[in-house]
Write a protein that binds this DNA or RNA. Structure first.
Length: 107
DNA sequence: TCAGTGACTGTTT
DNA sequence: AAAACAGCCACTG
């Protein structure tokens, strides 16, 4: 049995560059579809995970950068996403529907 | 031990 | 349509 956090790390690490996913999608893929909060909690500690997890590719279901404030710096998350070709406007993904990556699709 | 909080989401008023 | 409520699980004080 793999811990919840481990599964979250696995899924998030599988997110291809230039794509993003949502907490709900990951939580659902793992099992407890309503444990989206736990996903966020795990990602909060993902900074000390090995190897590092691209938590900046995980946003809420609206494509809003809900965790932006938790990154070091003020616009690091947005910068990273933009660096991957994702356009951000007012802390929200512009083409969220197009860059959205469903973990179930890959698994 | 109890109560409050959190990187969320879906349902109900 | 917008706002409020409830469920989810782990951690901290």
């Amino acid at each position: 049995m793999v811990s919840f956090a481990e599964k979250v790390y696995e899924v998030v690490r599988k997110i291809p560059k230039g794509k993003v996913s949502s907490y709900g999608a990951i939580a659902r893929c793992i099992g407890s579809g309503r444990s989206s909060r736990m996903v966020g909690w795990v990602l909060n500690h993902s900074g000390m995970a090995e190897p590092p997890v691209p938590a900046h590719r995980v946003v809420n279901r609206n494509g809003l950068l809900s965790g932006k404030h938790h990154f070091p710096g003020e616009n690091l998350m947005q910068s990273l996403l933009e660096n991957e070709g994702i356009k951000i406007n007012d802390n929200q993904e512009q083409d969220f529907d197009k860059v959205f990556w469903d973990p179930m699709q890959n698994l």
